[in-house]
Amino acid sequence: MSATRRTALITGITGQDGSYLAELLLDKGYEVHGIVRRSSTISGNSRLDGIYQAPNTPDQTLFLHYGDITDASMLTNIVRDIQPDEVYNLAAQSHVRVSFDIPDYTGNVDALGTIRLLEALRAADCNARFYQASTSELFGSTPPPQNEDTRFHPRSPYAVAKVYSYWAVVNYREAYGLHASNGILFNHESERRGETFVTRKVTRAVARIAAGIQDIVYMGNLNSIRDWGYAPEYVEGMWRMVQQDTPDDYVLATGEGCVIRDFVQVAFEHAGLDWEKHVRHDSRHERPAEVDALIGDASKAKEKLGWEAKTHWRDLAKHMVDADRQLLDDQLSGRHVRPDQD
C-alpha cells in the first residue's frame, strides 16, 4: 500500500451493499480487496460491472480473491497478506425466510463467520478498523421505534445468528481493544437487490406484468411494516462509522414505516396497473414467526455521524420499477443479459 492510499477488505462484495461500498471506496481513492465465493459472478453482467478491471493492469485498484467466510485459514492468510486499514464484513446468508429452511448453514455463515474474521484480524496482528453488517431483524417483536438501546427479540434463525455477531463485535471491542462497530441497518433496497427479496420481487413482477410476460405474483404477509431506505445512502453510513475515533454501534434508518401492501400498490400504480388484479396470497411465502413492525430511530447517527436518509420509500419504489422495466427491455432487445442474483 502506498503512503497515502488506504486499503479496504470487503466480504460479500458481489452483493448489493458490497458493490455500492466498493464503488464508494474506489471513488475515495482506496485500494479495495473483495472476497468472493467461487460460485459468485465477479465479471460480466454482475453488480461489479463498470468497476472491475482486468487483473494486473497498471491502474488496478480493485482486487478480488476467491474464498469463503467459513474458511478460517483463508481469512487469516488474506488479512495477513494485504494488511487492510478497514474491514467490512457484509458476507451473510441474508434471506430471512430461507434461514428457517437452512438454519445450520445460516448460523455457520452469519454467526461463526464473524468470529472467524475477528480472529483472523487478531491472528494476523492487523490493526484494521472493523465494520459488522448488523440488521433491524435483531429487534424482532420489540415494538417500534427501535434504536441502539432497544431490547433484542430475534424471530428467525437469521436474526439469532446476527445477535451472536453483534455481541461478538462488542466483546472483541471490549476484550481486545479492536476498533469494531456494528451498523444496525434497517431495510435498504435498490435496483441491485436480490430478486427473491420482497421489494425486488414486487418491482420485477411489475415490469414483467406490464410487458405481458406474466400475470400473477404470489406474496406472503402484506401487513408487515418496514422502514425502507436507499442502499447507496446506507453504505455511506457504514464508511462514516469506521472513520470515527471511537468505535460504536449505530442504527441507520429513515424513521418512517411502510406497510408492504402500500409499497406493492405504489409500485403497480407507477406502471399503470391495478395491484389487486395481479397479486395473490401464498402462505408458503410467510415466515413461521413474523416480525410485524420495524421502524428505526437514527437520531444517534444524525448527531454523531452527520448521516440521515434522503430517499423516501415511495420514490424508491418508483425508481426500482423504472430500473426493472429498463432492465427487462434491455434483456428482451438483446442489449443486455444479466443473470439472476440472490
Rank of each mutant, 00 (worst) to 15 (best):
T7Y: 08
I13K: 00
S19N: 12
L25G: 13
V32L: 00
G50F: 10
I51K: 08
Y52E: 04
T61Q: 10
L62S: 08
A72E: 15
S73G: 13
I82P: 11
D85K: 07
L90R: 02
V96I: 15
R97L: 15
V98H: 06
F100R: 02
D104T: 14
D110R: 03
A111Y: 03
A111E: 00
G113P: 04
L117D: 04
L121G: 06
A124S: 14
R129E: 07
Y131E: 00
S134K: 05
F139L: 03
G140I: 04
P144F: 07
N147E: 09
F152I: 02
S165L: 06
A168Q: 14
V169W: 05
R173W: 08
E174W: 04
A175N: 14
Y176K: 01
L178K: 02
H179F: 02
N182I: 08
G183F: 03
N187V: 00
H188F: 12
T196E: 12
T196V: 08
T199F: 02
R200Y: 13
R208Q: 15
G212Q: 10
M219K: 03
G220M: 01
S224I: 13
G229K: 01
G229H: 02
E233Q: 13
Q243D: 01
Q244C: 09
P247K: 01
D248G: 05
V251F: 09
V251K: 05
A253H: 08
T254W: 14
I260F: 12
D262G: 07
F263C: 10
W275G: 02
R284E: 05
H285S: 02
E286S: 04
K300V: 06
E303Y: 13
K304Q: 12
L305I: 11
G306F: 15
H312V: 06
W313M: 04
R314L: 12
L316Q: 06
M320A: 12
V337F: 07
R338G: 01
